[in-house]
Structure formats: structure tokens, C-alpha cells
Design a protein around this nucleic acid. Structure first.
Lengths: 253, 253
DNA sequence: TTACAATTGTGTACCAATTACACCTTTAGG
DNA sequence: CCTAAAGGTGTAATTGGTACACAATTGTAA
């Protein structure tokens, strides 16, 4: 039987072990018409870019915190948002400390502590987003994947891990529901996949595969007005889409 | 430019947001000769079983903390240990609170706070392990997968998630290096996979698949002494094994 | 010493999924 | 009304996975 004294001793010792802060870093991938960008903020005292992030509040589930942080920076709610890794190397704090050494008092303070960071990634349509800077930033904006600035801290690793995870999960999870308009064409959806994967896919094989997932409804109408042959419109079958989200798809690209 | 005052204001506000504790929970899967068990501890003041766990210390990378916790409970070091999920539902604390309500003072204290838990799973040979209880437990022992006790807190969810993740990752990651003797036979390795997956596999297809990964060396000798035809011995090609760990294998079971 | 049971070694045929590839249709614009 | 550009669709070849059978080895029991 555990005594009250044992508990108190443990509590006293454990008090020395507290991890200082838990933050959430959120890699927000923005898509629109074949483009793919990532949301970044620029530090207001130097040329350093970082990912949207924030703290988890007491009594707030981390999932809720991630949504809150995303909503604050983008204005969006209820989008695809997925936890993918925890980053907890204490070296993070050192860099952070040096970064603010001009303004911070010496010794221990909030920013010299270590931040353990839970990585989430989100998929959004960047035309729906109003990028909003935080208190440390003067700029919050979309950056092109092939024109990325220098990252602060370990945010490059976080970004890279998010992208790898996303590409991997593309084989197991349906995506696109909140990235495409209600009705869209097959070439448009294919462009989304090609953008994420960073490579071209075969038109015919893509279509067979995607249709094989059984999450699309083919509509009667075609997209008129454009040049060339009018493509058919499709919409997501929300019920089947969500079932696939839960149970996963088969096989890979 | 960020002013010192802004920083101080932020720090004061952020102080209200600290997450209380980060813990690590470790699902230790033990294997030996076709058996699979999981390491559990029994609370010393009631019939409640839980998974090995502990806190992350200041300036300790979480990866190191996970290894330390595992080493403390098992005596093992440098085994397969993988982060798989973060559990952060604030309800965890409520249950915890009720659990210790007899010994704890009312109001806020260490144990009434929320614990965010980073889930790791480990794969070990349970014949190499000396299960060691912690201060809250009277028993630390291996439990059979098909004879599991009632779990404390959300440890059932953590266990379940670990098992699902392990089974999934079996398709992408080579395993077995620290679970098999230096030299082993194909049927022995197959038994390991069958144990993890909880189902029988075809002998011939298993062999073709495993050999196709290119991480095994077939040795000249056979395992003599047993009844029946002597099987060939194999060993892991450590270099290729580690490369496969990094780059992953293809396809699934 | 021999027959048997248990286990291992190995190869092949079938099916499903993936990849590679070609021809026809539609539409706008000159 | 001809052409260029894009979309619709089908088929053959390859690869990977599953199912399955027979021969060889070894200890044990007759």
C-alpha cells in the first residue's frame, strides 16, 4: 500500500522533473489549382521563418489546441488536421535562447526552457485562408514549396517530416474533401495528387484507382466553358469518404 | 521588433497555459519462442494494472527518457523502441484523481493535474528481462496477450493503439534483430511474425517474401539435434537491416 | 532395420493489382 | 472545317500475392 508520505516524496521529486512547455507546431499545407504552399511566419526581429504554433492550455485536449491554433492563423475550422510526431530534442531551447538573447534577461525564463512540440499537419485550400501573424511575427504568408526560406529552430525537420508523412498517408487515407470545390473534374483531382506527391501520374491509371476507392460520385454534367473536351464533374460521397477515413484505403502509389 | 515588455506580457500569459506534466508510457512487447507478452505493473493499493511509464526530465530528450524508463523496468538498453502516438485527453487526470482520493489532499496537487503521455512501444526478448516494479507497484510482470487484466486509466487504449501500430508497421519495417538469436531458422522467424500478427502465414510465401527483403544471410549449416529435417540457419545482414529500417520495406502482409 | 510421422525445402499455377500504352471524342479558335 | 489541346476509355504486359503439392530429412517406435 502506498503511503501518503511516499506520495509526497514522489511529488517533491517529480516536481524537479517537469517538462517546461508543450507546444504545438502546425504544418499547414495550402492547395489551390495545382499549387501547393506552406503557411509560414516571419520573425519580427530578424530574417527567420517559422511554422504556426502555440501552447496547449490547461484542461484543453491537444486535439482542440491544434484546432484552435490553426483557426487563429488561418480563420479555418474543421479541416484535415493530423498529429504526426513529437519533437523533443532539448537543443531546441538553446537556439531559441540565443535568438532572443538581446531582449531576454540572463538566466532561466520562459524562453530558455525546452519546448516539446507536437507536430500536426493540416490540408487547406489557401484561397479560404486569411493568414494572420502572431505577436512574434510581422508576416504570415504562404510560401511556395520550391522557394522555402531558412527555417528557425528545428522547423525544417518538422516540415520535412510532415511532408514525408503526408505523402505516405496519401496511400491509406482519402484526401481532398476540403481541398476541392463541391464539384470537380478528374484532372483537377489528379493535379492535387500530383502536387502533393511532386510527380506526374498516369491519367488513366489514376482514374481507375481513385474510382476503385468508391468515394466519388460521377455527375451527369460536364464542366463547360473551358477549351477542349468538357470533362465530367465528380463529387465526394461524404458517407463513403468518412468511412474510408476511418478504415483506410488499400495499397500505395 | 518585439519589445521586452511584449515578451514579458507574453511570458506572464503563457505561464497560465503550461501543460502540467509530460509522461511517457511504454508498451513493452516481449517475445520468446512463439510467445508474446506485454509488460505490466500492478498498483500496490488496488487491483489495477498499468503500463511502464515515467516522466521526462529537464534537458532530457524524450527519446532518451523513453530509453531510460524502459531500462529501469527491464534492465535492457538499445532495443527497438518507437514513438507511436501522443495521448492528451484531460479526462485522464480525473480518473487518476479518483484513484488516489484516499491518500491525496483535496485540491490541486501533482496527481490531479493532467498528464500528457507520449506512447512508445518496444520489442524485446522477455528472457533477457528482469521486470522491476516502480514505487507505485508491487508487481511488475509479463502478461499474456490473451489473458490481460483490467487496465488503469487509458492504458487499454494505449496498448491497443500500440498493437495496431506494430502490426501495421510490420509491413514497412524489418523487425526481429534483437528478438532472435544470432542464428535462427526460417520457421523460427516465421513464428515471430505469426505471433505478432496473431495469425498463421503460409510457409513458402513467407520465405519468399522475407528473402525478397534482402536482409537475411543464408548460412551453410543447419540446425541439427532437433527431430525431423534440419532447417537451414540464417542471420540478419546488419547493414542491410539498418538500411531497411531507415528506408522501409515495400508492401504489406 | 525399417516404416512412419513430423517437419523442412522447393516450385508452379492462378488471381489481383499496377503499369504501360493507343485510339477516339470533344471543344475552341483560326 | 481543320487543327491543337485536352478528356474519355480499354487492353496487354508485368509484378506481386495467394494457394497449393511433392520430395527430402530426421528421430522414434515397431
Amino acid at each position: 500500500m502506498l503511503t501518503k508520505q511516499q506520495l509526497e516524496e514522489f511529488e517533491a521529486e517529480a516536481g524537479m522533473m517537469y517538462l517546461d512547455h508543450i507546444s504545438i507546431d502546425c504544418v499547414v499545407f495550402g492547395f489551390h489549382e495545382g499549387q501547393m504552399k506552406v503557411l509560414m511566419l516571419k520573425s519580427n526581429n530578424e530574417e527567420a521563418w517559422y511554422l504556426p504554433g502555440g501552447f496547449v492550455m490547461k484542461q484543453e485536449p491537444i486535439e482542440v489546441a491544434a484546432n484552435r491554433i490553426l483557426a487563429t492563423r488561418t480563420g479555418l475550422d474543421k479541416v484535415f488536421l493530423k498529429q504526426f510526431h513529437v519533437f523533443g530534442d532539448p537543443d531546441r531551447s538553446k537556439i531559441h535562447n540565443e535568438m532572443y538573447s538581446e531582449v531576454l534577461p540572463a538566466g532561466n525564463n520562459f524562453f530558455t526552457q525546452r519546448f516539446i512540440s507536437i507536430g500536426y499537419y493540416a490540408l487547406v485550400d489557401f484561397f479560404n485562408v486569411i493568414p494572420t501573424p502572431d505577436v512574434f511575427s510581422e508576416i504570415c504568408t504562404w510560401r511556395d514549396l520550391d522557394d522555402l526560406p531558412k527555417f528557425q529552430l528545428d522547423h525544417e525537420l518538422i516540415f520535412r517530416t510532415a511532408l514525408d508523412t503526408l505523402r505516405l498517408q496519401l496511400s491509406y487515407q482519402p484526401i481532398g474533401y476540403n481541398l476541392m470545390p463541391k464539384e470537380f473534374t478528374m484532372p483537377e483531382l489528379q493535379k492535387l495528387y500530383e502536387t502533393i506527391l511532386g510527380k506526374k501520374l498516369d491519367r488513366r491509371n489514376f482514374q481507375r484507382r481513385i474510382l476503385g476507392f468508391g468515394i466519388l460520385n460521377k455527375l451527369e454534367q460536364t464542366r463547360k466553358g473551358g477549351a477542349h473536351k468538357a470533362p465530367y464533374l465528380y463529387s465526394f460521397d461524404l458517407k463513403k469518404y468518412q468511412a474510408a477515413l476511418k478504415e483506410g484505403l488499400k495499397s500505395g502509389w
